[in-house]
Amino acid sequence: MPYTVDNRPANFREQMYFPEILQGLKIAARHFFKNLFFSRDANPDFLERDRSLNWVATLQYPEERVTYPPGYRGLHRLVPREDGKPRCVACYMCATACPAQCIYIEAGEYADDPVEKYPVKFVIDEMRCIVCGFCVEACPKDAIRMDSGEHAPPSYDRAAQIWDEQRLLRGPPISYQNDPWLRRGSPSISPEKLEEMRARARPFPTVATDEASQTPGFSVRALAQEAKERGEGR
């Protein structure tokens, strides 16, 4: 909101300097003592911090991180099916939509299921990616998402920024009721597993919402931490 700056000349009291200086010292001293004597609320969600006693607003970044908002486009992941294979059917829609042309796909067929395609190679060059999210929009199978809540981790060589299908395939699996492999069955899925997947399947969302494109509570960091705790560090 625009407001006018009041540039009136200083009155006599202000021209004496010291009253206003002492007022300023009072304010600065109040800040000093409050921040000195009381401990900081280290809540990463710093807008929610209790700042009644200590006014420090610092976020100690590597140790404390802000959780990103729900619509945040983070690192890509290939969404797995319940049986661990990618939902991706290698239709090249994402690679076509990608304005940075950072997605490379090689399609293949399951040996026992000639109807179904899958990506033999699915490579994203995270250095070329401009994080526009068009690939997520383009995907007809909800097979690629940017819901990890993480940006691409730094690395010392460029090769580490090229993510292949093994690194991309992670996170909670999803099944939809209109998935073709659930509706017609697939030789690559055992009948019991198929029943289980059908039972868990959700209706395919017709409206794009944050909830539809985001997996609540999922983060690559949490997954990595779990893997580390299991002793699967790579």
Partner: peptide, 10 residues
């Protein structure tokens, strides 16, 4: 450190 405390920093 003191300037940090005065300016709500660490």
């Amino acid at each position: 450190k003191w300037s940090a405390l005065i300016q709500n920093r660490i």
